[in-house]
């Protein structure tokens, strides 16, 4: 019976270590482009594994933006979705940053269809009346001190 219990504990531990305990830490996203500009999705991913979750720096994801730009050298990277998650495999922590985006070709970004709706221009604001000139007799000069 005791051996069976130990086996069960080992089995549960093995399953948990394979699956990992995932936690979503943060998500951010920017405006998603038009449907016609979503034909070329790109993705970059970086991760960092550490025993007992003791990490020695936080620079592992610094290359993600450059990685996205490298995949889209002649276009515009837009609709960026970034996710930071951590996974624990018993004694090991894995931190992962995943970024997804769309590469919009340069010619597509310059088409007139991408321009926003033109709204009628507002009329110019009315001209303000000139401020009344202060009479010269009321002008006083206060001297607050000086060397002379």
């Amino acid at each position: 019976m005791k051996a069976m219990n130990s086996s069960l504990v080992l089995l549960v531990g093995a399953v948990l270590s394979c699956v990992g305990c995932a936690s979503l830490q943060s998500v951010s996203m920017t405006n998603i482009p038009r449907g016609a500009e979503r034909s070329r999705p790109i993705q970059a991913r970086e991760n960092n594994v550490a025993f007992l979750g003791i990490h020695f720096d936080n620079d592992f994801a610094d290359g993600v933006p450059d990685d996205l730009r490298r995949q889209c050298p002649n276009g515009k990277v837009t609709g960026v979705y970034a996710k930071y998650e951590t996974k624990w495999y018993v004694l090991v922590e894995d931190r992962t940053v995943t970024a997804k985006a769309y590469c919009v070709p340069a010619e597509a970004t310059q088409t007139p269809a991408a321009a926003p709706t033109i709204t009628p221009a507002l009329p110019p604001p009315p001209a303000l009346p000139p401020p009344p000139a202060a009479p010269a007799a009321n002008l006083t000069v206060k001297r607050t001190g000086g060397s002379s």
């Binding site: 948990l16 305990c21 936690s23 979503l24 979705y81």
Partner: peptide
Amino acid sequence: AAGDTDFADQAL
């Protein structure tokens, strides 16, 4: 425990 964080991708 949860095994992944795919639900965020699904929402997107």
